[in-house]
């Protein structure tokens, strides 16, 4: 079969792959947002900026030290995580307990500063970042074109998401985390150091964003504003999925990436807005989101 609904199979499969590829980024970022929001009650507007930061750190380390991609994939997110620790301790800590809107505004301010400084130091032009040699090839399977790097990103993102899900839902540390989300004073009374847990959670969320940034660097150009448009789509994903569940964040990330990819095949003009349109429809019929509990 070479056609489905009048659309050539290679085009369709290519867009499905591309959709899942974009969905991998949505999933990684919305997962980080959900983890952070779950415990800190802060919507991390700086998430897009941290994503950009991961890409930039990878770019710079690659240039200066000539580190291979595999090393960058570890080092850059860790550095973003370190930055996030400082950010949490210096700034975010002061807005816990206030109206959650303050957290949004604070992190929005941080995002403006990070992106503005990146623009100031590196200009607005995108920086090229080459794919790792080992993954630059392309395979053909039954008429489907599979660029290795894209498949790699989808698989790695899926593993990371599932790992995070397992960490939170299936381990003792995750149990503390969930308990602290439900009833913080009680968990503190049991001797768990909640402030450290908060810092670690924020750093972990940021690390995920930085990780996504490094993976995005070879495909999307590394530029100061690469994260700012992405984060708005991710917000829509989060609204659709509801932030109540980790699994919901992951599933809706991939799902919406897929929807976007398919829209590109059927009606390319609407590809930019399809996620927002789905959000509007979902809000209309299920105000608490697809996977959310009633707020």
């Amino acid at each position: 079969m070479t056609e489905l609904f009048g659309i050539p199979m290679p085009v369709l499969s290519g867009q499905i792959l591309l959709g899942l590829f974009n969905g991998a980024f949505y999933a990684l970022l919305s997962l980080g947002l959900a983890v952070i929001f779950g415990l800190l009650r802060v919507i991390n507007f700086a998430h897009g900026a941290l994503y950009m930061m991961g890409a930039f750190i990878a770019f710079l380390l690659g240039q200066w030290l000539g580190l291979p991609f595999w090393a960058l994939l570890v080092v850059a997110p860790v550095l973003v995580g370190v930055f996030a620790v400082a950010m949490e301790k210096l700034l975010l800590r002061h807005v816990y307990g206030l109206d959650p809107l303050y957290g949004l505004l604070l992190t929005f301010g941080v995002a403006l500063v990070i992106e503005g400084m990146a623009q100031y130091m590196f200009g607005v032009a995108g920086k090229p970042f080459s794919q790792p040699q080992a993954l630059s090839g392309v395979s053909m399977i039954g008429g489907m074109i599979l660029p290795h790097y894209r498949v790699f990103v989808i698989v790695v993102a899926l593993i990371t998401c599932l790992g995070t899900w397992a960490l939170i839902e299936r381990t003792r540390l995750g149990a503390f985390l969930r308990a602290a989300t439900e009833n913080r004073p009680l968990v503190e009374a049991f001797g768990v150091n909640v402030p450290v847990l908060l810092t670690a959670t924020y750093a972990f969320g940021a690390l995920l964003a930085g990780f996504a940034g490094v993976m995005g660097a070879p495909v999307f150009q590394v530029s100061a504003f690469m994260g700012s448009n992405l984060i708005i789509i991710v917000f829509a994903v989060v609204v659709i999925g509801g932030m109540g569940s980790i699994g919901g964040a992951i599933a809706s990330g991939f799902l919406l990436g897929l929807c976007e990819g398919l829209t590109k095949v059927v009606y390319p003009e609407a590809a930019n807005i399809v996620v927002f349109a789905i959000m509007a429809v979902v809000l209309f019929f299920r105000p608490s989101g697809l996977f959310g509990k009633a707020a």
């Binding site: 505004l105 929005f108 100031y120």
Partner: peptide, 8 residues
């Protein structure tokens, strides 16, 4: 934007 961010 850096200035606006700091003001925020």
């Amino acid at each position: 934007n850096v200035v606006l961010g700091l003001l925020f």
